[in-house]
Design a protein around this nucleic acid. Structure first.
Length: 396
RNA sequence: GGAGAGGUGGCCGAGUGGUCGAAGGCGCAGCACUGGAAAUGCUGUAACGGGGUGACCCGUUCGAGGGUUCGAAUCCCUCCCUCUCCGCCA
């Protein structure tokens, strides 16, 4: 706050000086244009005054700049303010479960194999060779595994396109400005992969390239709401998660995701958030995968979100629900960083948009859920009805 | 990656140190003409930020950032992007 006050003072000071400086520049121009001797007394005097102002300005400008940079850096470190309705809490233990669906689909088979075991048995998941080619926490999908992944992606996209989203296929290598725009930078640099020779990063989520499509733009209110869905691979270093979920598809460095992103006017963002969650839920329901919805508490909510719902799918082998989608309303937080505004017809000035994003869904985790929930006693996997047209088979 | 040419308002395009935020055209808006329209004529028309009820006023912006200068769209440096040719390549 103090910094801000100082900065404003400097700014008004500087602005007055540059006004006078502009004036002098113009005056000299006029006099010379009007036939005045460029080397004469009058001009020399003006030049002098101009020089003095210049000296003052040269002192003020760096001060102002340094201050603004300092403020900027401080602000970039600040997380979004949670919405008033976001439950208070310290950790994920304080998240509030608000819905449970599909209990009747929870398999009672006691002999369910974890998805990585069944996957390797069926020859559709190959972790070993993926490690050779890359590192641990990578997977190679083989045959029906690759086809299932592709079917899921197509099914998810088709469903969301029907729900009114426009598909995009953005770059997955993105620059630092983009990561800053959606608030992955500066705080989470350690969590992303960076190219060593270029200012490019592997995108950790399609939220970044999609939201940044509109960075530094002033949209017409008639263009809003913008609703995009996209399939992209996502890349995360998973720094700090050593030892957690080291087996299977749950926590990989590279995974596929279908993402939903909305750019909306502030008045509708709450309602758009609700439908975003419903759109993500629709996939789980269509696949008949049991899930629950948590409303994240203040202690667990992400850096950029004001309000966030997590969808968690039932994983029988673990005997627990695991996150499969996270649906956030960032309000104007990202819009301010990325400078995404809109103009209302007939109204003066501009306003910040609200941005929302959610997974619809994480594809690898969906595959894991299917491999476990759809296991049959004979060790085969029944293909969910809605995927059969894509896979052209009923059993894996 | 190499060589060259560029990046100016909603669009095209002029402008190589000074009354330039920027000629001209297109587009758009208003008015006139018309029964109505087209054509034509006249007038107006950049954005963003800040201030004022308002007419307006101030600041910033000619790809971005720095420099030279009293003064930069114009000169110098760095970077980004686009186009042409060559090279390389899925």
């Amino acid at each position: 706050m103090e910094l801000d006050r100082a900065s404003r003072e400097l700014e008004s000071n500087r602005s007055q000086l540059s006004a006078r400086s502009n004036e002098i520049g113009k005056l000299i121009g006029k006099k010379i244009g009007g036939g005045c001797d460029p080397k004469g007394e009058e001009i020399a005097q003006l030049k002098n005054e101009g020089n003095e102002i210049k000296i003052k300005l040269s002192k003020l400008e760096p001060q102002e700049k340094a201050l603004k940079a300092k403020i900027e850096a401080l602000l970039l470190e600040l997380p979004n303010l949670p919405d008033d309705s976001t439950p208070l809490g310290k950790s994920e233990d304080d998240n509030v479960e608000i819905k449970r669906w599909g209990d009747e689909y929870i398999p009672d088979n006691q002999n369910i194999l974890p998805h990585w075991e069944i996957g390797e048995k069926l020859g559709i998941l190959d972790f070993k060779r993926a490690v050779k080619v890359a590192q641990s926490r990578f997977v190679n999908l083989v045959g029906a595994g690759a086809a299932l992944e592709r079917a899921l992606i197509s099914f998810m996209l088709d469903t969301q396109i029907d729900a009114g989203y426009t598909e995009v296929m953005p770059p997955v290598l993105i620059n630092s400005d983009s990561l800053q725009g959606t608030s992955q930078l500066p705080k989470f640099a350690e969590d992303s992969f960076k190219c060593s020779n270029d200012d490019l990063w592997l995108t950790p989520t399609a939220e970044v390239p999609i939201t940044n499509l509109y960075r530094d733009e002033i949209l017409e209110d008639t263009e809003l709401p913008i609703r995009h869905c996209a399939y992209t691979p996502c890349f995360r270093r998973e720094a700090g998660s050593a030892g957690r979920d080291t087996r299977g598809l749950i926590r990989l460095h590279q995974f596929n995701k279908v993402e939903l992103v909305k750019v909306v006017v502030p008045e509708t963002s709450e309602a758009e958030h609700q439908t975003l969650v419903e759109n993500a839920e629709a996939i789980l329901r269509a696949l008949k995968l049991p899930y629950r919805i948590l409303e994240l508490c203040t202690g667990d909510i992400g850096f950029g979100a004001a309000k966030c719902y997590d969808l968690e799918v039932w994983l029988p082998s673990a005997g627990m629900y695991r996150e499969i989608s996270s649906c956030s309303n960032c309000r104007d937080f990202q819009a301010r960083r990325a400078d995404i505004r809109f103009k209302q017809a007939g109204k003066k000035g501009t306003q910040y948009v609200h941005t929302l994003n959610g997974s619809g869904l994480a594809v690898g985790r969906t595959m894991a859920a299917i491999l476990e929930n759809y296991q049959q006693p004979d060790g085969t996997i029944k293909v969910p009805d809605v995927l059969q047209p894509y896979l052209k088979r009923e059993v894996l």
